[in-house]
Design a protein around this nucleic acid. Sequence first.
DNA 1: CACGCCATGTAAGGAGTTACATGATTGC
DNA 2: GCAATCATGTAACTCCTTACATGGCGTG
Lengths: 180, 180
Amino acid sequence: MTSTLGFAILAVLARGERTGYDIAASMRRPVSYFWTAGHSQIHAELQKLLAAELVTYEKEAGPGPQDKKIYRLTGDGTAALRAWITEPPRERPERDELVLKTYAAGLADPAALRRLFADQLARHEARLVEYAREEEAIGGPPAFGDPRWGNYAALRCGLGYERHRAEWCRWMLDQLNASL
Amino acid sequence: MTSTLGFAILAVLARGERTGYDIAASMRRPVSYFWTAGHSQIHAELQKLLAAELVTYEKEAGPGPQDKKIYRLTGDGTAALRAWITEPPRERPERDELVLKTYAAGLADPAALRRLFADQLARHEARLVEYAREEEAIGGPPAFGDPRWGNYAALRCGLGYERHRAEWCRWMLDQLNASL
DNA sequence: CACGCCATGTAAGGAGTTACATGATTGC
DNA sequence: GCAATCATGTAACTCCTTACATGGCGTG
């Protein structure tokens, strides 16, 4: 009954023990571009994982009024994560606001559309530069056993996505320019 | 205050009058791969759009116990849709279960991972064939004024996306094979 | 002295899914 | 007779976002 968010947390904890705050930090853009959650959602989910005995924690004196809690996977938690990884992902429906706008674009002002897509293209190109820098920092695919292998493979997917998007934006701009 | 779903409905109605049922049908996969919603969500949203006077309807005798309602855009509705199209889309956080699994893949059985990605690849290739057929049916980009232009441009995005995903799956399979 | 970082949580509301509920017509 | 299509809607639930609430420590 664990939600995908729950497994996302388990996946982060598989890399080492963390506080809820640390987990929230590592799930904030642009550090990880494949799952995001706010801290309030994470604290709530950690309580469910705790009840299911997939994680435990140790208290430490915290900076605020409450104690700091350092979470770590249990044996059950590791097993549940391992089993989940190779199960087929449940497909979430595609929801893409930009493509929806495109679908209705015939009604809009072509000049304004050009501004919209030029702006989107710039964003994708900026992310592409950023990801390429990260790829260079890792310097080629690590070995499969290495935990950085997961980071690299995810980064690869991000690079491919941004490239595809940038290309589509360029095609759209060509189309809009040709229609004038 | 209209939600993206509201605009999705307005975008469908911009192509012609529809019942709630028709809208739900046109927003069901794989016909439109950029926004989806169930009929219960659509009926509820139509009531909000009605209250905001962005749509109107005419009653007709229906097949069930209730009357059939044929919805159509009002002047305000068309204006709201037109203005929305060229506004920058609010970015939704990326949530990709397969990439999340990849991030944690180091813990899993490589053979099971290979099955997972082979299966995903097959799905993307099947969609690619399907979309290519649809592209051929339209036969090149229609003129910008043509309402089918929006369909074609969205289809183009879908094609690029499936191609990128398929390529990434192939790269993953290569990696997994190399690690054995 | 204000702001950002660290660190925990609750509460309210919107968005989306799934199941329940009704009922005529058409095709296997 | 059973299932699918057409056609409407409500109810319960989960997931996610945003705002509220507390408070010490370090930096400019």
